[in-house]
Simulated scan of single mutants.
Amino acid sequence: MTGFGKSEIAIDGRRMRVEIKTVNHRFLDINIRQPRFMMFLEEDARKFLKQSLSRGRVEVFINYSSERLDAKKVIADMPLLHAYLNAAREICAKTGVADDLTVSQLMRLPDAVTYEDENSDQDALRELLFTNLEAALRELSAAREKEGAQLKKDIDARLDMILSYVETIAGKEHVIVEEYKKKLQDRIEDILDGAEVDEQKLAQEVAFYADRCNITEELVRLKSHVKQMKASGEETTPQGRNMDFIVQELNREFNTIGSKTQDGEILKMVIAGKGEVEKIREQIQNIE
């Protein structure tokens, strides 16, 4: 399910911003983008996210800055500085030019000093990260719940439409056998060219066809699947995979009904029903 949540918190001069974005995906795929010095927290962050998320592609963006006086660390490359000094002395000895190097000039020489963020307080970083993650997840959850309510309303409406198609098909179920009997009788009369039709054999053929084209079980299962789908929509636990399975079964039942009859009205309802099932299938890709 798509959603977005963010949090920005500053504690003791350390500021962190966390953004969480989720999009549709069959499985749970978490991608965390963070400063290198926070890599030691990545596995714990994944475990924390998995407690709240079970499906979707999850993008986590972590930005960090510090206003503390000890936020920066200056590192002098002493071997390199000694090499610069030795080179300067050699120049002086060979050219007679006075050595005017100062400490400030030495520090400006290429690669003489480097600057690093001082982030050695791992406990402080951990507290800041998980406080932000918790707040961002709350905002994400609220956004996803709002979208979920809209999806549920749309899916329920489509399920009601499917039930109306099922009722229409059920009302035509008895017509299937009658239409077949009439077509079979007309065909036999044409072949026999006016001769008397063997009513017993005709009845046997119609009975055989009636058993083969019976769609009562499919109609019952369709109603049951719709009921299960609606019940899943009321659950508070992740139902995406369960709904995926129910949609497959709905489609299967409509296909079976379509294969058992040539009645135009029933086939029209089958096509319409499959259309609604496909729209539901697209929608539940957004559901965790």
Score class of each variant (00 low, 15 high):
residue 150 Q to I: 03
residue 150 Q to P: 07
residue 151 L to T: 03
residue 152 K to L: 15
residue 153 K to Y: 07
residue 154 D to L: 03
residue 154 D to N: 13
residue 154 D to F: 03
residue 155 I to P: 07
residue 155 I to K: 09
residue 156 D to C: 13
residue 156 D to I: 08
residue 158 R to D: 04
residue 158 R to F: 04
residue 158 R to W: 00
residue 159 L to W: 09
residue 159 L to I: 15
residue 159 L to N: 11
residue 159 L to E: 08
residue 160 D to R: 12
residue 160 D to S: 12
residue 161 M to K: 07
residue 162 I to M: 08
residue 163 L to E: 15
residue 164 S to G: 09
residue 165 Y to S: 14
residue 165 Y to Q: 13
residue 165 Y to K: 13
residue 165 Y to L: 14
residue 165 Y to D: 14
residue 167 E to Q: 07
residue 167 E to Y: 10
residue 167 E to C: 01
residue 168 T to Q: 10
residue 168 T to D: 04
residue 169 I to T: 05
residue 169 I to A: 09
residue 170 A to N: 07
residue 171 G to M: 08
residue 171 G to C: 05
residue 172 K to Q: 06
residue 173 E to I: 02
residue 174 H to A: 01
residue 174 H to F: 01
residue 174 H to V: 00
residue 175 V to W: 06
residue 175 V to L: 08
residue 176 I to E: 05
residue 177 V to M: 01
residue 177 V to W: 00
residue 177 V to F: 00
residue 178 E to C: 01
residue 178 E to K: 04
residue 178 E to Q: 05
residue 178 E to I: 00
residue 179 E to S: 06
residue 179 E to C: 05
residue 179 E to I: 00
residue 179 E to Y: 06
residue 179 E to W: 01
residue 180 Y to M: 02
residue 181 K to M: 06
residue 181 K to Y: 03
residue 182 K to F: 10
residue 182 K to A: 13
residue 183 K to E: 14
residue 183 K to Q: 15
residue 184 L to Q: 10
residue 184 L to R: 15
residue 185 Q to D: 09
residue 185 Q to P: 01
residue 185 Q to G: 10
residue 185 Q to F: 12
residue 186 D to R: 10
residue 186 D to M: 13
residue 186 D to C: 13
residue 186 D to V: 11
residue 186 D to A: 15
residue 186 D to W: 12
